[in-house]
Design a protein around this nucleic acid. Structure first.
Lengths: 230, 230
DNA sequence: ATAGCCGGGTGGTGA
DNA sequence: TCACCACCCGGCTAT
């Protein structure tokens, strides 16, 4: 392939050692300030690189899934490369299952392909290989498995209802089964609520009071400075 | 948990050590002669397990891509687990790029998700974790979804309203100002909604449709297994 | 993400 | 009816 591989790299990846290697392999590296991802291989393919330690940290801080989400929204084929010996850290971790669960969610939930490398050299090698490959020749009958991406209505309904105070997934499920729709749930009266299993006088009162509480926008919202004050 | 994880295992995987571990974790293991794949987690999800040496061998023999192809044809979410220290073997290998290329082809060409584990224990842990929470299709959501900490009533109101599809903090504020209470917001009609600044016909329609969508609890979703089904 | 603990609510039991 | 109690559920914390 006479054409030179061109890769966009986020400025913050400069010191990772990977970009120099990519250049050494013959790639054309261009630094940018990327809003999302660390390496852009094409308009459809981008890579987020994380070392194993970062991976753990960003998992616990919640940063991980946010980044995964944004990457998956911005590129059709997003990928994550975990650099370093994550598998050893898994064993040291008190909660290995949290890690497995996180990997599963990233892969199946957000549709990222996850890869593992040992060090910057392998990372660069891998990225370069993919970039050079460019288009992947689909063997025989390629599956372009397009994700239904059906942000299932059901999940959204559960989410909205369980955002009520004192209501979690279980109670939300019962409420929706009982009332049939989100609107009906939010229109229910106190006595109706109290009849639902898991709801007694106390919870029903709390919810009713909350639903009917009049909204008093405060002039200054500590965490929401940008709300309209018109 | 009332629901027991059920996993179909290929007879030839008996001696891998993984099935016993799955059983030990509380899973229900059933042995079968599987035409393709080693572990079947659902009608849509199956796993091919290979140790690092097998992976290399089957790569060079061409068997690897054939299996990947068949797995991808048979299941909507196929996955490959490579057990053992493949990454070290990569460096010893004469052609590292061949391996990276193979991984890329398996992932992007055939649509398999590839994972690495260190030993049978990790493999079992991973498979069990996936099977248990059964996350095969996913919610796509900005992950901002964590119930706020101790909040004022006003913050709770904003949170509930902004959990509506297409509604953020700003629009939630306007809705609450306009309608006065959470219940009133959720009782609003389409024309009333469309009058609010920031809402056009489209958004108003989406929200109305969502509010009135009937709740269909799916009993087939493993992720819902822990919700009451009665 | 997962697991575990805690506090409070619920709903059934028996007085 | 009411007090008691076992269990369930939601919410918080640590890893």
């Amino acid at each position: 392939m006479p054409f030179q591989v061109r890769i966009l790299v986020d400025e913050r990846e400069r010191q990772s050692g990977v970009p120099e290697l990519l250049a050494k392999f013959g790639g054309k590296v261009e630094y940018r300030f990327l809003a999302v991802g660390d390496y852009v291989l094409s308009s459809e393919c981008a890579v987020e690189r994380k070392d194993a330690h970062d991976f753990i940290n960003s998992l616990f801080s919640g940063r991980l899934f946010d980044q995964a989400y944004r990457l998956s929204e911005a590129y059709r084929t997003p990928m994550l490369i975990v650099e370093g010996d994550l598998l050893s850290m898994v064993e040291e971790s008190a909660k290995p299952r949290a890690l497995w669960g996180a990997l599963a969610t990233i892969a199946f939930g957000y549709g990222l392909h996850v890869f593992f490398t040992r060090d910057a050299t392998q990372t660069a090698d891998f990225i370069y290989t993919i970039a050079k490959h460019g288009r992947f020749t689909k063997p025989r009958r390629p599956l372009i498995q397009k994700k239904p991406r059906v942000e299932t209505v059901q999940e959204s309904q559960l989410f909205v209802v369980s955002s009520l105070p004192g209501v979690g997934p279980r109670l939300a499920n019962r409420l929706l089964r009982r009332f049939g729709s989100v609107r009906q749930v939010f229109s229910s009266s106190l006595p109706q609520l109290a009849l639902v299993e898991g709801f007694g006088r106390s919870r029903a009162e709390n919810i009713t009071r909350f639903l009917d509480a009049s909204y008093r926008p405060s002039e200054k919202l500590p965490s929401q400075a940008r709300l309209d004050q018109k």
